[in-house]
C-alpha cells in the first residue's frame, strides 16, 4: 500500500503566540516550529499500516524551505521519502492546499491520503474534506481507529457524543484525531538515515495549480484581556449583578 501523508510546519503548541503589530499574522521570529501534532499522528498511523501491509510512506509539506525540517522529522520516524511544495502560508487557503494535493495524488497514486484533522495554527479543518471531494474519493475524518482489509478502510471516528464506524473503498482520505495513536520518538539512527532519504521539491506552478485565494485573512486580533473577577457576598447579589451589570440573565 502506498500512503501520502501531510506534515504542516506550525508553531509549537507550548509557544506564547503574539500577533504582529500590523495584524497581518503572528510573530514567528524566535518561536519554535514543530510538525502539526495531528499530522504526526498521521505519520505514525501510516508507518503502522505499512509495517502491517507493506508499501511506502510519502510525506508532503506545503511551505517555505524551512518546512524541510518537518519532512525530515517524518523521515526520521521512518517515512520513505518526502515532497516539499514550495509556497508560503499567505498564498494558501484550504482550497489551495486541496488543489495542490489533488495534483500530487495524480502523480503518486496513493491508496490512502492521511492528514491531521486540522492544523493547530489555522484550525480550519477543511483541506482533507475538500481534497476528497475534488478526487471523488470516500473520506473518513476524526479517526480514532483505522483498519485496512480487502481493499477497504474501516474507521472508527470520533463524532459528537460518541464513536461512529464508517467504511470506505480505497483509495480514500482519512484524517486523524488525537487518540488514534501515540507517535513514536524518532530514533537517533532514524535521524541520521533521514538525511539520505530522497526529498523532492516542486512549486505549485510546476504542478499547474492556480492559487487564487478564495478566503482572505483580513486581520488577526488577540483575545480580549480577561478582567479581574469579583467576589460577591451571597447568591442574591450574584443574581442581581448577572441581571443588571452583566445583563446575562
Amino acid at each position: 500500500m502506498k500512503f501520502l501523508v501531510t506534515v504542516k510546519r506550525v508553531t509549537d503548541y507550548e509557544a506564547k503566540i503574539k500577533v504582529k503589530a500590523d495584524k497581518s499574522g503572528i510573530v514567528t521570529d524566535g518561536v519554535n516550529m514543530i510538525v502539526n501534532p495531528f499530522d504526526e499522528i498521521g505519520v505514525e498511523e501510516a508507518l503502522r499500516l505499512k509495517e502491517k501491509h507493506g508499501g511506502e510512506v510519502v510525506v508532503v509539506s506545503i511551505g517555505d524551505k524551512d518546512a524541510t525540517q518537518q519532512i525530515r522529522s517524518a523521515l526520521a520516524m521512518g517515512a520513505d521519502r518526502g515532497v516539499l511544495v514550495t509556497s508560503n502560508d499567505a498564498e494558501l487557503d484550504s482550497a489551495g492546499v486541496a488543489k495542490i494535493l489533488e495534483k500530487l495524488v495524480a502523480e503518486e497514486s496513493p491508496d490512502m491520503v492521511i492528514m491531521g484533522k486540522q492544523a493547530i495554527d489555522g484550525d480550519s479543518n477543511q483541506a482533507a474534506q475538500m481534497l476528497a471531494e475534488r478526487l471523488g474519493w470516500g473520506q473518513a475524518t476524526f479517526a480514532n481507529t483505522v483498519t485496512v482489509e480487502d481493499g477497504k478502510v474501516t474507521v472508527i471516528r470520533e463524532a459528537d457524543g460518541g464513536l461512529e464506524t464508517v467504511s470506505c473503498t480505497l483509495p480514500a482520505v482519512v484524517t486523524t484525531d488525537l487518540r488514534l495513536n501515540e507517535p513514536r520518538y524518532a530514533s537517533l539512527p532514524g535521524i541520521m538515515k533521514a538525511k539520505r532519504k530522497p526529498l523532492k521539491e516542486v512549486s505549485p506552478a510546476d504542478l499547474g495549480v492556480d492559487l487564487a485565494l478564495q478566503v482572505v485573512v483580513k486581520g488577526l486580533e488577540e483575545p480580549p484581556q480577561k478582567s479581574a473577577g469579583q467576589i460577591v457576598p451571597d447568591v442574591a447579589t450574584l443574581v442581581d449583578k448577572l441581571q443588571n451589570e452583566a445583563k446575562a440573565l
Binding site: 520518538y185 530514533s187 537517533l188 539512527p189 541520521m192 538515515k193 538525511k195
Partner: peptide
Amino acid sequence: AELGLFGATLDLGDGPTLNYVAYGLC
C-alpha cells in the same frame, strides 16, 4: 536502546553514526 542511544557514535555497520556534538547534546 530503542532511541538508539547505546553506542550511537560507534560505527556498528548499520548506517550512519551520530557525531560527537549530537551525542553530547543527547
